[in-house]
Nucleic acid binder design. Structure first.
Lengths: 286, 286
DNA sequence: CGGATCGTTGAAGGTGATCAATAATCGTGG
DNA sequence: CCACGATTATTGATCACCTTCAACGATCCG
């Protein structure tokens, strides 16, 4: 199932993926049909560079599954992730600036790419597509505001709690009947750290602290059971229960617009959860 | 000259301001003329709330002079400024999210406001205006990326040095023939601190440290003389001399599009600079 | 002149990054 | 199947940095 290390290509079969995506319903029937002709599906391994600042942004498309990181490096090796591109998101439009940005895959990812010329021409012709792009950019801006706010005004432990809560809307998450919830952290610690402007060690420690206090339970490095979501929100600094925005899907219905994403297959009732979890095989949540 | 504490209104006289603004050349002749009819100029004192999240965003317009802060407060009193709206910028479009954002004047500011209904109608009708709005949003996003990167990956002293350099393009700045430069910090320490996610004390100390090292000279709290711009860039973490983006004007020619902004009236040659500086009368750079 | 705000300076203390070591897991190859 | 190296997650200890608290001086406004 995992075709690591090499890139699989699928030609216009991408139409199938496209048809059921939120993006397609956003841009309307005609644009979707014309785009489907110029689409092809591609699966890239983790940590693959999609483009950096000098390479022209030949890539436009939507993420079918997996996660991309839009980031910037400093000469001293420091890194800041500015956007986590999640399934359903559009990518390739970020290339406005000529700064040292890089777009990489954070996990193995399946992408539905469009030919850029076709895409650009369609943008000039189709008003509905333009409006959708406008909304996407507005969503990007709002997500970045959330991130900036979180990094600038929150302590690391608050950031991490807030991130966990927000991740419910764009990472495999299953609310269980007893009020708890099971989440699958799709990206590595390092990426979470560089997104939240902290260190992997701090993330570990905060996770353990949250577990000590009975807010979460660490099943394995990639799976966390939320035991007390309200207390978690308390930790995150928001007295109101719900997170406002956070790096989630940018579509019109954030939190619902998952697109093709496999949910965790967990038992429903009081059954021991660990037993139904796939052994953590590094290959991240399936 | 300073009508502090009360708000002065000027009716359609705003057309004059509008005509010479970058914004107007951006949106084209016809849109500009129609907008001028619905424009009126208003001068607000510092620290005036233009809107917060519950109040409908009745305000749309461009900043003629002065600075606005787009910010978010936490319950514990922490604040993060997410955008510094500078002369020439469009404001009032940020209101997408329903989060706890606030738009306030950071200094006394002169605004050219548009009737929102006229503006919205014009947006639906005029494609050139729409394209200009798109560019403005793209610029906003790029500026926020710079801020997020700076806060997340830089140390406080690096942030402050980078901020000083970037401020050259959107605050009163005068390059002097001998290679130095004189800048007028238009906003208070507190605002700089909350923009860069640090404290006013740290800003003071870093300023003093930069002065000790001969990079700058503190003339008075609002005026700084840049003595060694290259070394300043070095401190800012960028080995390349120039700052890439930073919170500057969002127009097509960042750094040049000052619009109506008074420059520092300083002597040109080796004359003592302090003598020509207006005594710092709290009222910020005129 | 008195109150308020802002900027500057000093001291202290906590916090989180950094370094270092161990454990666990995966991929490879035998 | 097992050994091996590489990568990642975890845990511990140390320390520098920066925030916080406090006090003072300067300026503005009444």
């Amino acid at each position: 199932m995992r075709s690591f290390g090499q890139t699989t290509r699928g030609a216009p079969a991408g139409a199938a993926y496209l048809a059921e995506s939120v993006f397609c319903t956003e841009i309307g029937e005609p644009a979707c049909r014309r785009l489907a002709g110029a689409a092809h599906v591609e699966t890239v391994p983790a940590d693959k560079v999609l483009w950096h600042d000098d390479a022209p942004p030949s890539a436009v498309g939507i993420v079918v599954s997996g996660y991309l990181r839009f980031q910037r490096h400093s000469r001293e090796g420091r890194r800041q992730i500015l956007n986590l591109t999640v399934p359903g998101d559009l990518f390739g439009q970020e290339s406005e600036g000529r700064n040292g940005y890089t777009l990489e895959s954070a996990t193995e990812a399946t992408l539905c790419r469009f030919d850029r010329r076709v895409f650009d021409r369609l943008v000039t012709e189709d008003g509905m597509l333009r409006r959708a792009l406008y909304r996407f950019n507005a969503g990007r801006l709002e997500r970045l505001r959330w991130l900036t706010w979180t990094i600038g005004a929150m302590r690391p432990d608050e950031r991490i709690a807030a991130f966990l809560l927000s991740a419910r809307s764009y990472m495999p998450y299953r609310a269980l009947p007893d009020g708890t919830g099971l989440i699958s952290l799709a990206v590595a610690r390092r990426d979470i750290a560089d997104l939240l402007a902290t260190s992997v060690e701090t993330i570990c420690r905060v996770f353990k602290a949250l577990e000590r206090d009975g807010l979460i339970r660490l099943l394995d490095p990639a799976h966390i059971l939320f035991l007390d979501i309200d207390a978690l929100a308390e930790r995150a600094g928001l007295t109101d229960g719900e997170d406002p925005c956070a790096p989630g899907p940018v579509g019109p219905k954030p939190g619902l617009a998952h697109g093709p994403m496999t949910l965790i297959n967990a038992s429903c009732a009081g059954e021991p959860l660990v037993s139904v979890l796939p052994a953590w095989r590094g290959g991240r949540p399936d």
